[in-house]
Amino acid sequence: MKKQDNTILPNSPYIFKVNNNYEGMRLDKFLKLKITGIQQSHLERLIGSGSIRVNQKKSKPSNRLNFGEQVSVPPKLKDQKFDQKVKTQFIPLKNDIKLLKSSLIKEENDFIALNKPSGIAVQGGSKLKRHIDGLIEYAFSNIEKHYLVHRLDRDTTGVFLIAKNKNFAKEISEYFKHNTIRKVYIAIVCGIFQNHEGTIDIPIIKERSDKSEKVVVDEINGLKSITNYKVLGSSENYSLVLLFPKTGRTHQIRVHLSHLGNPILGDGKYGGNFKIEKNINKISSLKLHCLQMSFPYKKIKNNIINARLNSDFSDCLKLLKLDKFLHVVNRYIENGF
């Protein structure tokens, strides 16, 4: 009997095997992870011509991959060096994909709600390599197209909405524009408040310099900005505060609290401490969390979405002995703010 020859010929295609991490991912997205720098147009030509195949059959860029499938590419393509002038493709970290998947609070036909993690920006930029906008298609393979409809600062956590279709994106954007959406934030702030509750009605405006952008109080040219607040309790020269923004200006809550002389813990941009006085080795991130968001949806007048505090925020509350006031927060969530 003739012996089978298993030798791989020089011109044989290179095979990528689909494991659990890539199951359900689009073929073009999968290949962008495997072949650094390749352009979408180049991929589409190769897939369309049959030079790239799935299980030896022609496929489409939008084809969803199954576990165990084999993606074959021309032998030289895997190690080909593409022109460095080509815009670098977004390459997600596996841990970020996993983190975003675990942050899902709720999914409807028209939107998903996430409990946004700290440290991940909403949208990418020249210096931002981690952002939700780029991660969505990898973390939620069932979403064909997504639309960003609002923003949270990179280090702010909590409820974050993403539209799944253009019609709802337009509808929810109008809600944000006209302040129809009710938002409740919770923050750990530096110092003790003079009043246990009140309204901050201070106009603010963006101020640009050559190197940075900052929002400042400006009584003459500033935009009307209103934030209601309620102090839940104080300890260790820090306070736990609920905040109800009535307008949605950039950095509004952060600037308003700083103006009162009570900046948010971890907010170095607006005067907040990074180090906790009780534990100087503890470096704090921004302690601002969107606790609840409510808005009209279909036949529900107030569709309420809550986001639990992350472990870092909770640990900080315990360290500062502010966790004893959390029962008040839970009571508000149960009975309404």
Rank of each mutant, 00 (worst) to 15 (best):
3 K>I: 15
5 D>S: 15
6 N>W: 14
12 S>Q: 14
19 N>M: 04
19 N>A: 05
20 N>W: 00
21 N>F: 13
24 G>L: 04
33 L>T: 13
40 Q>M: 07
42 H>M: 05
44 E>W: 06
50 G>A: 04
51 S>F: 06
54 V>Q: 07
54 V>E: 01
54 V>A: 04
55 N>R: 02
59 S>G: 01
63 N>P: 00
63 N>Q: 12
67 F>Q: 12
70 Q>C: 02
70 Q>L: 11
74 P>R: 00
75 P>R: 01
77 L>I: 07
77 L>R: 12
79 D>S: 09
79 D>R: 02
80 Q>L: 12
80 Q>C: 07
82 F>C: 12
85 K>P: 00
90 F>M: 11
92 P>H: 08
102 S>V: 00
104 L>E: 03
104 L>V: 08
107 E>H: 05
107 E>I: 12
110 D>P: 03
111 F>I: 01
119 G>W: 00
119 G>P: 01
123 Q>K: 06
123 Q>E: 11
123 Q>T: 10
124 G>E: 10
128 L>E: 15
129 K>V: 14
131 H>L: 07
131 H>Y: 14
131 H>T: 06
134 G>K: 13
139 A>E: 08
140 F>V: 10
145 K>H: 11
149 V>C: 08
150 H>G: 04
162 I>Q: 04
165 N>K: 06
170 K>W: 00
177 K>W: 00
183 K>H: 06
184 V>I: 13
191 G>A: 01
193 F>R: 07
193 F>N: 09
194 Q>F: 02
196 H>R: 11
201 D>L: 09
208 R>M: 07
209 S>V: 01
210 D>K: 15
211 K>V: 07
212 S>E: 05
212 S>Y: 02
215 V>R: 09
217 V>L: 07
218 D>A: 11
223 L>C: 06
224 K>L: 14
226 I>R: 10
230 K>D: 02
241 V>N: 11
241 V>I: 15
244 F>K: 05
246 K>R: 15
248 G>S: 08
252 Q>K: 09
254 R>E: 05
255 V>N: 11
260 L>I: 07
263 P>I: 04
266 G>H: 07
267 D>W: 10
269 K>L: 10
271 G>W: 11
276 I>M: 07
278 K>M: 05
280 I>N: 05
280 I>M: 09
281 N>D: 14
285 S>G: 11
287 K>D: 01
289 H>P: 07
290 C>Q: 04
292 Q>C: 12
293 M>W: 05
295 F>Y: 12
301 K>E: 15
306 N>F: 15
309 L>I: 10
311 S>L: 04
312 D>I: 09
312 D>Q: 09
313 F>L: 10
313 F>K: 05
314 S>P: 01
318 K>R: 14
321 K>C: 08
326 L>S: 11
326 L>V: 06
329 V>W: 03
331 R>G: 10
333 I>A: 05
336 G>P: 08
337 F>P: 00
